[in-house]
Amino acid sequence: MSNAQLILLDKRNQPLKDYLVAVAASDGLTIKGVEVMASPAKGEKSLLNGGIIIPPLEQYDYNPKKLTEASLKQINVNDEIISIECFIDRCSNDEAVRKALSKSINKFSKQLLTIMQSFCDSEVIDLIKERRNDALFKLHNHAKDLKGKKIVCIDIEATNISTDPEADIIQLSACDQDGKELFNQLINPGYDIPENDKHNITTEMVQGQPLLAQAWDEIHDTLRDADIVLAYSTESDFMYLQKSAEKKMLRFELDYNTWLDAAEMSRDLIGAMRWHSEKMYWFFKTPKLTAAYEHILAKPFPGDAHDALADAVATMELLQAMLEKGKKSQVKQPKPKAKAETITNNPFAAAFANAKKA
Rank of each mutant, 00 (worst) to 15 (best):
Ala305Asp: 15
Asp168Arg: 08
Glu80Gly: 13
Lys66Glu: 05
Ala310Leu: 04
Trp275Val: 10
Lys335Ser: 14
Thr202Phe: 05
Ser329Ile: 07
Asp18Tyr: 09
Glu95Arg: 09
Glu157Val: 00
Pro165Met: 05
Glu85Ala: 09
Glu123Lys: 13
Glu253Ala: 07
Asp79Val: 12
Pro194Phe: 05
Ala321Pro: 01
Ala24Gly: 10
Ile161Asp: 11
His140Gly: 11
Ile201Arg: 00
Leu127Thr: 08
Lys149Val: 04
Met116Gln: 06
Lys110Cys: 10
Ser244Ile: 03
Phe348Met: 15
Ala314Asp: 02
Glu341Ala: 05
His306Thr: 00
Val21Pro: 02
Lys243His: 10
Ile125Thr: 15
Leu212Glu: 01
Phe137Cys: 06
Thr30Gln: 15
Tyr60Met: 04
Asn354Ile: 11
Gly326Asn: 04
Met116Tyr: 02
Arg267Leu: 05
Lys337Asn: 15
Ser329Pro: 08
Ala70Ile: 05
Asp237Ala: 11
Lys129Asn: 15
Asp145Arg: 07
Glu278Ile: 06
Tyr281Cys: 02
Asp168Pro: 03
Asn188Ala: 00
Trp259Tyr: 00
Pro165Lys: 06
Gln242Ala: 10
Glu204Trp: 03
Asp311Asn: 15
Trp282Ile: 07
Pro15Trp: 09
Lys356Arg: 11
Gly50Tyr: 06
Pro64Tyr: 00
Pro55Val: 00
